[in-house]
Write a protein that binds this DNA or RNA. Sequence first.
DNA 1: GCCGACGAGTTGTCAGACAACGTGGTAGCG
DNA 2: CGCTACCACGTTGTCTGACAACTCGTCGGC
Lengths: 247, 247
Amino acid sequence: MSGTPSLRHQLARELRTRIHAGELAPGDKLPSEPELAHVRSVSRSSVRAAITLLEEEGVVARRHGSGTYVTHRPALPNDLSRNFGVSSLISSTGLTPGTAEETCELVEPPPWVALALEVPAGTPVTSLRRVRTADGRRVAITTDWCRSEHLSPEDLVAIGDGSIYAALSARVLVVHHGVATLTPGNADADAARRLDVARGALLLTIDQIDTTADGVPVLVSREHHLADAFAFTVVRHGPGAATEVQP
Amino acid sequence: MSGTPSLRHQLARELRTRIHAGELAPGDKLPSEPELAHVRSVSRSSVRAAITLLEEEGVVARRHGSGTYVTHRPALPNDLSRNFGVSSLISSTGLTPGTAEETCELVEPPPWVALALEVPAGTPVTSLRRVRTADGRRVAITTDWCRSEHLSPEDLVAIGDGSIYAALSARVLVVHHGVATLTPGNADADAARRLDVARGALLLTIDQIDTTADGVPVLVSREHHLADAFAFTVVRHGPGAATEVQP
DNA sequence: GCCGACGAGTTGTCAGACAACGTGGTAGCG
DNA sequence: CGCTACCACGTTGTCTGACAACTCGTCGGC
């Protein structure tokens, strides 16, 4: 697919890395656009486009006539607006991710999953069920479903610890974005046993539908997280800046 | 403060409205950049900058040499990445928002709130505590804290049903973004009484710190939502597109 | 019928210019 | 000495025009 990302995305990525690396601290002023353009030997248009990306991400803020500044923004532990897997979620806290009780099979999905995957009810789909651990402690139950013609159970066992996203990308099914729904819940008997906690323990459930840029759903997942194992955060923009809902 | 938003933001807003209004359906191709520029009598640069904003929001996707297309994206009931108040959250579901048990006073905040507001522990701050209703049903408990020099208790009772954000904006304290943390929980005795539910009922708690573009914290809030009253969703981008965490 | 080349249309990048705005310094005034 | 008004400079915002890179339908040759 798209071999090289566009120039502005490369530039944005460079700047983002420099900022996150601490080279540019919050409140610092970025070099001026003409200067950045000269240093990298690109046009000012491209630099501007790149900075616009970062601005929309909330990483920097522009001030007309003054300069562009790195915004004061806390390092978010687990930014929900980014689509990471559970493994990177765990390793980002410094713990070692692991897997227990992995089950990979062809199953008849729950109705809501069939609906999300746009397959007729009753159609068998590939399912991957795992209990995830952090430094050995059981912290989450995850279930992934995808259409059997996209990934077969054999494909899944082959990838092992690799990301499902990577496996899908190899099949030209690049996940563009996912829509997640969050609901609190209590552990039922089965979940309590798998997670090795008392029945009724607090869980945060994340149901998610991942789709390509064309709107084709490729992956549906349900994750039950132990409430005290993670803190989920999200940056919320606005309120005035954008978005009004209409009836 | 910034009287007029920059041209590209105006253009982006227009396009966004047209798309959300259904004038441009998912999958549709936008008019070409030169055409949009000509129709609105602005330069192509500004149109490009506007579309770049929408692209980063995930509303449209560009394809080099082909065109710009509206992405397939479901209408999200309550997009967490947007910073709306509880009132608009309720009214967006078609119900009528209301308030019960409103308390507005000067209090000594919990330590985490004092920390977030960057005031010495023990400093009295303005606090607004409300039980929110939807069509009369009690659905959420919200508590807002802000520094007393920003908004006094008298200011708050004056605004009545108006938004706190609006009151802050009038004081040149424009909220740029907020960072929210989500945790599941069970209703304690007090919460159960206020919400008129059984003790132990499932709640979703949202702790949020709103700051200006300069990183000045202006509003801290804690909201306890009845789990079955709302569904919170968030769009998650990636995974490949952006963001790699580094140690 | 199939395949390759072509061309119109679109986005991506470049270059240079001027306008709008903030900021700091400086000269003038009280 | 302190304060204010003004001005020059740097930075971002927008405009104009051009060309490169790419997509996709079409048309001609085989």
